[in-house]
């Protein structure tokens, strides 16, 4: 433990914070706090990418860090905040499963991801390989959040958080994806959120609610 470089320690710390935030999002009942937590996760992701970029002096990682900051910590939360305001979402998030149960499932997911990631990360030679398990766990937790929430906005936040996890996985396993892929994903996410935003209004107009359980009953009448 003593001769682990400071950079790796910092990356591990940031990864741990990302995992913590993933759990906080899973437990969160308020929509606005959820979005703030997501922004915070984006910020942490940006910091962790910056540390990797600085240590390995990979120029393109600075770009992805900047992109993360701009998109995930500022633009997307801003869009979501606007959406919440425009949609006048006042209610709290109603999980389909009780929060403590979700958390327990979350822990099981974390254990599984850690076990799955361990042999893979040993193949990798990057300084941040230890965080692969955490990245996988964040993806799984975001997945879980999408499954357990019945309202549309938390599901979108879950989708975005999943992208955060994937990004962390890419950084930790291979020092990031090629720039083209990254830009493509970033654009995809942005466009996706905008389209989903429009979609929210449609759902609300149709059902007077953002509960997507209504969509299950969609039938031609």
């Amino acid at each position: 433990m003593t001769d682990v470089p400071l950079a790796t320690q910092l990356i591990n710390l940031f990864a741990a914070v990302i995992l913590l935030l993933a759990f906080a999002m899973l437990a969160q009942r308020r929509v606005l706090t959820l979005i703030n937590l997501f922004a915070l996760q984006g910020l942490t992701l940006c910091l962790s990418t910056l540390v990797v970029a600085f240590t390995t002096s990979q120029a393109h990682l600075y770009w992805s860090a900047g992109l993360t900051l701009l998109l995930k910590a500022m633009l997307l939360p801003w869009i979501l905040h606007r959406l919440v305001r425009r949609l006048e979402v006042k209610w709290d998030v109603e999980p389909l499963i009780k929060v403590p149960t979700t958390m327990l499932v979350g822990i099981v997911l974390v254990i599984i991801s850690f076990n799955v990631a361990l042999p893979i990360s040993q193949l990798s030679s990057t300084i941040s390989r230890g965080t692969l398990g955490i990245a996988l766990a964040s993806v799984m937790l975001a997945f879980l959040m999408m499954i357990t929430r019945s309202k549309a906005i938390p599901q979108v936040v879950g989708f975005l958080a999943m992208e955060n996890g994937l990004f962390l996985a890419a950084t930790s396993a291979t020092y990031g994806m090629p720039m083209v892929v990254e830009l493509g994903i970033a654009l995809d996410v942005l466009v996706g959120v905008i389209i989903l935003g429009v979609f929210f209004f449609q759902i609300r107009d149709q059902f007077d609610s953002l509960d997507i359980r209504h969509l299950e009953k969609l039938k031609e009448r």
Binding site: M1, T2, D3, V4, N12, A15, A16, L19, L20, F23, M103, L104, G106, I107, V110, I111, F114, L118, G130, T131, G133, I134
Partner: peptide, 17 residues
């Protein structure tokens, strides 16, 4: 949960030199 996570993170991140 946080305590268990701490334990897991300890196992995953900090055990290897």
């Amino acid at each position: 949960l946080f305590a268990v996570l701490g334990l897991l993170v300890r196992l995953l991140l900090e055990n290897r030199v």
